[in-house]
């Protein structure tokens, strides 16, 4: 014990993951703005923000799931099914106040289904959500029938594209989502239960925490957030593509891990995850602006993830 403490105090100062990410974001911005005069403009930042909204919303819930010690690779599928149901509902001429709750409910139900499979049948989360991912994508194909749904109404577009009090609307959406998630995670008994299960599921069970129930609720929450992301997606693009949501699960996991979450559970940071999202989206945007093919963006994200994992691993070694 004393040895571990000595190792920690021997480090002169401890940079938090958030501070590290902030530095990385600033460095990234500097590089891009030196290469392209269009990068550091208000208009471009609004664009980056608009493109980040769906991923940011999903990442808030993904952080909670990873803290719980789980993972959800089916969020893309949930997003896709919610979006296609929203699209079909709009096509049938339903008004916003019917369509939006329908989309959210679809997401929450599909998420809860994941939760039930994981909690009740003890299928590991990665396998269970992999399986439901296939099923949800099948549902998408069956409903959409291989043709884009397009020309949807723009009544909700203000949620992403609009402006309130001089700031882009996306900021408020992200702000509300993250404030809600933070309060839930850090200021409620439910959030404490999530952390406890993520740290040590067996002990959590022994002290009487309803592990199954909490897990189902958490997966329902990420489903709900995927539903929110679907509403925002349709509001922003006013169409539903055939390959909607294919990469978003892996991007969300990457952003969450970049933000300091530990896949073994118990540890994670909402603000870090949000910065991870900004990092990914800024890279995608900046590479295009400086004339590098957008095909390189996955390489950059992958390389960055590897670097972060190596730094973490070396840090863990030193404190061990």
């Amino acid at each position: 014990m004393a040895k571990g403490r000595a190792a920690v105090t021997s480090r002169p100062f401890r940079l938090g993951r958030e501070a590290l990410l902030l530095v990385a974001l600033i460095v990234l911005c500097t590089i891009f703005s030196l290469q392209s005069e269009f990068f550091l403009t208000e208009r471009n930042f609004t664009t980056i923000l608009r493109n980040s909204v769906d991923l940011a919303v999903i990442c808030a819930a993904m952080t909670i799931i990873i803290i719980l010690g789980g993972i959800d690779v089916s969020v893309g599928g949930v997003l896709a099914v919610s979006a296609v149901i929203i699209g079909r509902a709009y096509q049938m001429g339903m008004p916003d106040w019917v369509v939006v709750p329908m989309g959210l409910a679809t997401g929450a139900v599909l998420g809860a289904l994941n939760g039930v499979i994981i909690a009740r049948t003890r299928v590991p989360p990665i396998v269970a959500t992999l399986g439901t991912m296939y099923i949800y994508i099948a549902v998408l194909f069956l409903v959409i029938g291989g043709v884009w749904i397009s020309g949807l109404p723009n009544t909700l577009s203000f949620l992403v594209l609009g402006e309130f009090a001089g700031l882009p609307a996306g900021i408020y959406v992200i702000g509300v989502t993250y404030l809600f998630s933070w309060l839930l995670l850090r200021r409620t008994p439910w959030g404490q239960r999530v952390v406890a299960i993520g740290c040590d599921e067996l002990s959590a069970r022994l002290v009487g925490i309803p592990v199954e129930k909490t897990k189902i609720q958490a997966y329902a929450l990420i489903g709900l957030f995927a539903g929110v992301a679907a509403v925002l997606y349709v509001a922003r693009l006013r169409n539903v593509e055939v390959n909607i949501g294919t990469n978003i699960a892996l991007e969300a996991i990457a952003a969450t891990i970049l933000g300091g979450a530990n896949i073994r559970g118990g540890v994670g940071s909402l603000i870090g995850a949000l910065m991870g999202v900004l990092f990914i989206k800024m890279t995608q945007n900046g590479l295009v602006l400086i004339g590098v093919s957008s095909l390189w963006e996955t390489v950059v994200i992958g390389a960055l993830l590897i670097i972060v994992l190596v730094i973490d691993a070396l840090g863990e070694r030193r404190t061990r």
């Binding site: 993972i71 990665i126 892996l250 996991i253 990457a254 891990i257 896949i263 073994r264 093919s293 095909l295 390189w296 963006e297 996955t298 390489v299 950059v300 994200i301 992958g302 390389a303 993830l305 590897i306 994992l309 190596v310 973490d312 691993a313 070396l314 863990e316 070694r317």
Partner: peptide, 27 residues
């Protein structure tokens, strides 16, 4: 090396290399 030497969980390590490799293949 990532998994066995640095002790990164395999899911995370291979997710990262999945991004890097598939990105490299395209780029």
């Amino acid at each position: 090396v990532l998994i066995c030497v640095l002790q990164v969980p395999s899911l995370m390590a291979t997710l990262a290399t999945f991004f890097a490799y598939s990105g490299l293949a395209l780029a």
